[in-house]
Write a protein that binds this DNA or RNA. Structure first.
Lengths: 205, 205
DNA sequence: GCGGCCATCAACCATTGGGTTGATCCTCCG
DNA sequence: CGGAGGATCAACCCAATGGTTGATGGCCGC
């Protein structure tokens, strides 16, 4: 079985290579998303172990999409540090066969790689738990408009500036904020921004 | 030269072990701070490679302090993902001989380990740059108290909660906030938090 | 010892923000 | 067709926030 490792940290690449040495053949290593797509096309691995955070360039989700768009695509296993709702959902939506956390024990990694190669899907228990909670807890997703407002909130805008920026009234801004607070389980704009950043609903840059 | 690796991620431990194989003898691996102190006492390594985020139990800074309090203490090299001001300062204050980032190339890691073993200090270029900016930019420095308040701001606390948490009056909280806003060039708590996160003065976790 | 910086507190005031209720209009979906 | 959910707006109230001025005591360094 041939594996392609995609991670921007040399230390992690070396670790995965060392751990997988007895289990499978590590056909190559990529440090960026672009590199990952090129190497997947050239090497035809069975499984791609993909990090989501890849530094500059395309991220792991986009790289997953492109890898799976190749002819005779490999299976893609996400291996990342975070387990945010949006990360998980977007990775699965992109077609990933599994989602593992980096602090998982090596045995779990082996099992997941074997499962992926066999065409099955594999999730870390914490990831499964998070997805389950999403199913139990439906209307908790933010709308596009709400996410847009959150992003501007993070720039420190007042409700008034927000209203002018979006060509809506202050009342509407406040209504959106109330909904956002309810969905995020907070009761202030600052808390909304920090939890949104933690859950990767928005990004600071 | 004997090295002790301290990191809560099995993948990272394996990676460091693999990378260092040709350079030094990896005498042991620890997954928690407590384990790290015990193994440092038992194995007498020359250098301890210490992560700052260690999951439950004592963190890397406290573990560093305790390791350096041992008789015939080893050198401690911090190897972590983040480069926040407070992390760097507290690690150096705890007596760390160096501060590396996990995305550093392996050669830099080798150099730093050799330097640490020789009693010299070693810092990643981004870390050095951050410390240098601290020196160049004196007046805009946040005090320890102000950083503490910022961190709590990021949790979404109100001024009143802040006051109770820190056993000071609301008036004092407001004074601190005014100073923080001035130093960061903002005029709201939300903007203060986001720019502080962007400048890596605090971290969200 | 004096100036500078920090931490602490007070009182005032205008603006902003959060909570509530209720409403209209739209689109999507069963 | 009817309901669900999203986006829009209004009026009300109270609490929280930000801006200002001014004051005290501690500590450090020149």
């Amino acid at each position: 079985m041939k594996i392609l490792i995609v991670d921007d940290h040399p230390v992690v690449r070396a670790g995965l290579k060392a751990l997988l040495a007895g289990e499978a053949e590590v056909a190559g290593e990529a440090a960026t998303g672009e590199e990952a797509v090129a190497m997947a096309a050239a090497l035809h691995p069975d499984v791609v172990l993909m990090d989501l955070q890849l530094g500059p360039g395309i991220d792991g989700v986009e790289a997953t999409r492109r890898v799976l768009a190749l002819p005779r695509p490999p299976r893609v296993l996400i291996l990342t540090t975070y387990e945010t709702d949006t990360d998980i959902v977007s990775a699965v939506a992109a077609g990933a066969s599994g989602y593992l956390l980096k602090d998982a024990p090596p045995e779990e990694l082996f099992r997941a790689v074997r499962a992926a190669a066999a065409g099955q899907s594999a999730m870390s228990p914490p990831v499964v738990a998070r997805l389950a909670r999403r199913v139990r807890e439906p209307g908790s997703e933010l709308s596009a408009r709400e996410t847009e407002i959150l992003q501007l909130l993070a720039e420190g805008l007042t409700n008034d500036q927000l209203a002018r920026r979006l060509f809506i009234s202050r009342a509407t801004v406040k209504t959106h904020l109330v909904h956002i607070y309810a969905k995020l389980g907070v009761d202030s704009r600052t808390a909304a921004v920090t939890t949104a950043v933690e859950r990767r609903l928005i990004r600071l840059d």
